[in-house]
């Protein structure tokens, strides 16, 4: 497997750091090497937030993303701030319910109404990060759906299993349709 570099961006409170941790934990379950890091502003809610996940089969030294394979942008500000530098064959995933206007002239851009799906299909906006991460896993197959599911269930609060499973399935399905 090649080294995968993910950059998950949005605003504080959208659960992107949690999403990054879940993706990392899914990869750990498969025995892979993982480094997860983040940068954030002083705001607990709002402000640009960025989580990075690197997954590899060999030891990871430099802990930050050099050039991402995948960018997720869940706010207009994040799309503008983080949505330009990417590998030639990389993919940018945009939450079209949060980002009005985004173009990239070199790489593939996928627009998915992530937050809207969370609100309308799952009934809880806060599951948007789970839809997003399932979409990215479906897109890249960096880990199996089963590993992702286990990682999600390990981390979420008791009583939210059903809605998070639903969120995962929605994200996964959308990824298969978009491929």
């Amino acid at each position: 497997m090649k080294r995968w570099e993910f950059r998950l961006s949005g605003s504080g409170g959208q659960g992107l750091i949690t999403a990054g941790i879940i993706l990392g934990e899914a990869a750990v379950l498969e025995g892979k090497e993982v480094v997860q890091s983040q940068s954030y502003g002083p705001e607990a809610r709002g402000g640009a937030s960025k989580a990075e996940v690197i997954i590899d089969t060999k030891k990871i030294h430099y802990p930050k993303v050099v050039l991402p394979d995948i960018i997720l942008a869940m706010s207009q500000e994040a799309a503008q701030k983080y949505g330009s530098e990417i590998k030639e064959n990389g993919i940018i995933v945009i939450d079209s319910s949060m980002v009005d206007d985004f173009k990239h002239d070199k790489v593939k851009v996928l627009k998915i109404p992530i937050t809207k799906l969370a609100k309308d299909e799952v009934g809880k906006t806060f599951t948007a990060n789970i839809i997003a991460i399932a979409f990215l896993v479906g897109l890249t197959k960096v880990v199996s759906f089963d590993s992702l599911k286990q990682a999600v269930l390990n981390r979420i609060p008791k009583g939210t299993e059903a809605m998070n499973t639903k969120a995962m399935e929605i994200g996964w399905q959308w990824s298969q349709e978009k491929l």
Binding site: I21, G24, A27, V28, K32, E33, V34, V35, Q36, S37, Q38, I60, P63, K64
Partner: peptide, 9 residues
């Protein structure tokens, strides 16, 4: 800060 905040397996 990098070592303190990063997560590794």
């Amino acid at each position: 800060e990098i070592v303190g905040h990063m997560r590794e397996n």
